[in-house]
Design a protein around this nucleic acid. Structure first.
Lengths: 232, 232
DNA sequence: GCTCGTCAAGAGCAGTGCTCTCGTTTCTTT
DNA sequence: AAAGAAACGAGAGCACTGCTCTTGACGAGC
């Protein structure tokens, strides 16, 4: 039925994929703003204007790369979580942290595209949201699993959560049902700490200071886990 | 004696400052990669080629802006620290955290230049280092002041520091003398957590989730301070 | 078989960083 | 004070960018 239309659509889908593949390779070499539609077209042996049949603008190509990146990271995180027994909550947490860092180290430019400075003039469309939260769903599930299993014992040395945080906490709770406000704050701290660390490592803030970064990262994440109530 | 040479040098210094001023304004509007030497020259009413008499390349202009940015942030941090009585270590810490965030919110593009994704192909020269650590010197001083005063009581719920961290800790200790390894790790966590939070806030990761960001930030930093051993 | 929509290609526009040359101005040395 | 050297601004030009518009060819549906 659709084989006739598919003939055309298939070559179109093929070419679209080839374009994003080449673009991703260029991204890995020259970074986000070094991405050139003309260079992509050149590498594909087609006219630069032909690219615009597939991506109306450079921003649209970027959007495709961003969504792909979020999905790749999300998948890495999901796999890392699935590789650890479901009840070993601390182990799942650590595995997920290392998965994020490992992925970022292998794909630094893609990480920068997702979590670095926003590309000037580029406004991320709403389509990116589902992919963007794919990894956070996993973090939330680990915390709420641990909470439900009664395995969460956060040390009681934090100041009390201010009431003004109630509404924000409720929104976060959609990712980790039934979890109390205090734990949500701790999760937020661990989350920002995880990406803060990786960004510092990737963007050069540790240069000439932290050298054994894998060990320091592992220990830092272990501290985060303990603060979260997931001691090793 | 130098007044004759100064005649030329003075107008040169003046023009150099004007160029960086205009560039900073353009940076604030269009972001780092939107910065255009030709546009700067246009706004100054001079030929684009004349700019190159003052900055050999766009990267050199960027370097100047980066150094200025680090100094501006460092100064804001120093002022915030100086405004709080020297013995109120927790208050100094909180003041400094809020100073960083306030500065970042007022100068988002400059913050992105300093702590966001590195500009592709741009390699920060060694001249930026002194300015870049100006703020960290303040953090280190607060922690070591508190430690020396015996006011540091970190809760004992962290895993033991791995021996492999010894060398890195020694390097960090140059900023906060006499402080034990455990506290250095905690400082590192607070440091990465501070900038991780601000980057998430500025780069849009909190969109549609954390709305009352000032309150959430304040509470998060208070938790960091407690973890560091500086309870309010 | 003819029409119509899709497609790639080419030329072109406005913009970029950067280089080179050419007079002019300014400083330094004699 | 005069002569040489260094610094300077302006302009043209190169190679590149994202993007638009037009032209001509190809293939699918009536």
């Amino acid at each position: 039925m659709s084989s006739s239309r598919t003939a055309r659509e298939r070559v179109r889908a093929e070419l679209t994929r080839e374009i994003t593949d080449v673009a991703r390779r260029q991204l890995a070499v020259d970074g986000a703003s070094g991405l050139s539609l003309r260079a992509v077209a050149r590498e594909l042996g087609m006219a630069s204007s032909a690219i615009y049949r597939y991506f109306p603008s450079k921003d649209d190509l970027l959007t495709a790369l961003i969504i792909d990146g979020y999905n790749a990271l999300g998948e890495a995180v999901e796999n890392a979580d699935a590789a650890v027994p479901h009840t070993e909550h601390a182990g799942r947490w650590m595995a997920v942290c290392h998965a994020v860092r490992d992925w970022a180290l292998v794909h630094p430019h893609e990480y920068a595209l997702l979590y670095g400075s926003p590309v000037p003039g580029y406004q991320a469309p709403q389509d990116t949201v589902p992919a963007a939260i794919r990894d956070t769903v996993v973090y939330g599930r680990i915390v709420s699993d641990a909470h439900r299993a009664g395995a969460l014992n956060p040390p009681g040395d934090h100041p009390p959560v201010p009431p003004s945080f109630r509404e924000d906490a409720a929104r976060v709770r959609e990712l980790m049902p039934d979890v109390p406000d205090d734990v949500i704050v701790r999760s937020l701290i661990a989350w920002t700490g995880l990406f803060g660390w990786i960004s510092f490592e990737l963007f050069g803030q540790f240069n000439n200071t932290i050298m054994d970064r894998t060990a320091a990262f592992d220990h830092t994440m272990r501290c985060h886990a303990a603060m979260l109530g997931l001691p090793a």
